[in-house]
Simulated scan of single mutants.
Amino acid sequence: MNDPLQDAEFFRDPYPAYARLRGECPVRRVPTGSGGHSAYLVTGHAEAREAFVDPRLSKDTARFFAGRASQRDLHPAVSRSMLATDPPQHTRLRRAVTPAFTAGRVARMRPHITRVVDGLLAHWAPGAEADLMAVLAVPLPVTVICELLGVPEEDRGRVARWSDELFAAGRPDRIDAASHRLADHMAGLVGSGRHEEGSLLHALVGRHDAGLLTETEVVSLAVLMLVAGHETTTHFLGNSLLALLQHPEAMARLREDPDRIPGALDELLRFDSPLGVATFRYSTERLSLGGTEIPEGVPVLIAPGAANRDPAVFPGPDRLDLDRQSPSHLSFGHGVHRCPGAPLARAEVEIALRAVLSRFPAIRLAVPAEELRWRPTRLVRGLESLPVVL
């Protein structure tokens, strides 16, 4: 059996495969890649929520790979990031970045985010053709997270490109090389002091000076915030725009009443999650999940994209319903590893949707939806381009 999460049809539309796998068993063993490797895939909503908080499923991948031969050469700042730790180490590292993403901090950033969106859309007139990924969905979160971190403007194009290359599915050499370029560059910013006072980088360096973080941890957190801070938001926005373009009635409702947009974000996140399959965990002991026995020491993959369309929780899951109450979606994860940047991502997408819907009342897809190109990775569910007629 081939890896069910790696063919071209899955990347274009993963939901039939998710539904089939979930219908067969919400937790099942699946092959992954080549070489006879396998993992346990979690596709049911209840089972995914349970897996996200089960302490027997560890994120400490360094421990998992210890003593195993590997051909990979990921930079330690990437391979041993906060995502790959368990409490209490994870708790300590997370405490260093959460102040940057509080509701109050994000509220103070909203005027600036609005100015960034207005600047990106200022040169576009109704009737023009544009790729909304290139002109809005990519540069908006890149600009915001780089400014939050304190990355100089002249560096942002390069770090965004290296970040994008970390998701080059099927190209481990390219991924490894990008990890070194990105981590080495961020280490240079930290070491040279070439970052803005008051920025997140400045705060992380301050925690290092106080003995609370090592220099490696500062670089690792900076890389993680950069990558996670724009990749997820880029595809949250891109997927939301596409969903509305394919559901003109829903788009019209939001255009007529923009104050409905914040309440619609959870349903848009549920309907087409930017997080397809979460970074892997592994079992530290034998356990039972969803009626499936999982042995000790094997990888476990949780699929929010599948869990968000579980009909046991979301009736008519393949239907976009802006009246649906969807706060239990898992697009930002769940438990201690839930995305700390979720408030910022929501603010960026809300502000961007308001601008697009108000400026371009006749916006439509420039190509048939089946011709759209999707990124060939199971981790991130996102478009490579979104051509529209504004």
Rank of each mutant, 00 (worst) to 15 (best):
R381S: 11
T279R: 14
H337E: 11
F64K: 03
L140K: 04
H75Q: 08
F101C: 15
L226V: 01
L386I: 07
D86L: 06
R281F: 08
P152T: 04
F167M: 06
E350P: 09
G263S: 05
T32A: 12
D259G: 13
A125S: 11
D259K: 03
A312R: 11
R338N: 05
T377R: 04
A352V: 13
A183D: 05
A160D: 00
L149S: 01
A160Y: 00
H123G: 15
V313E: 09
R319P: 05
G33V: 01
S240P: 14
E267R: 02
S34D: 13
L149E: 01
V300Y: 04
S70I: 02
F10R: 05
A169Q: 09
L224Q: 11
R253M: 08
Y40K: 10
H247I: 11
L275I: 15
P26V: 08
E231R: 09
E9P: 15
E370T: 13
R346H: 12
A250H: 07
A100E: 10
V144G: 01
L41C: 15
D310I: 01
P4K: 13
R359Q: 04
P26S: 10
R346P: 11
P327E: 08
G291L: 07
S163M: 06
E153I: 00
P295R: 03
P262T: 08
M1H: 14
A69H: 15
G150I: 01
T98G: 02
I351P: 13
R63S: 15
H247L: 11
V151F: 05
G333P: 03
D7P: 13
A342C: 05
G290A: 10
A122S: 12
G211V: 09
T232M: 15
D310K: 03
A8Y: 08
S81Y: 07
L132P: 02
S58N: 09
R12V: 09
P274M: 06
L372Y: 10
D321W: 00
S331I: 03
G341Q: 00
A243W: 00
E370A: 11
P76T: 08
P14S: 01
L390I: 07
L289S: 04
T85Y: 12
R309P: 05
D118C: 08
V389E: 11
E147Q: 07
P55G: 14
D13K: 10
R92P: 00
S288P: 06
A17P: 05
A103G: 15
G170H: 08
K59H: 13
W374E: 12
L379F: 09
D266Y: 05
A130V: 05
P299L: 02
L287Q: 09
P304I: 09
D54T: 06
E47D: 07
C25E: 13
L166K: 04
I113H: 00
G44H: 01
L268M: 03
F64M: 03
L74N: 09
A168P: 06
E384F: 06
P26H: 14
T102W: 06
I363W: 09
R255L: 02
F236G: 12
A51E: 10
L344P: 00
P87C: 09
D321L: 04
T234I: 03
E197N: 10
T91S: 08
S163N: 02
E370P: 02
S79V: 08
R161D: 06
F314T: 03
V30S: 10
I175V: 15
A187V: 02
D131R: 03
C339K: 07
F10I: 02
L201R: 01
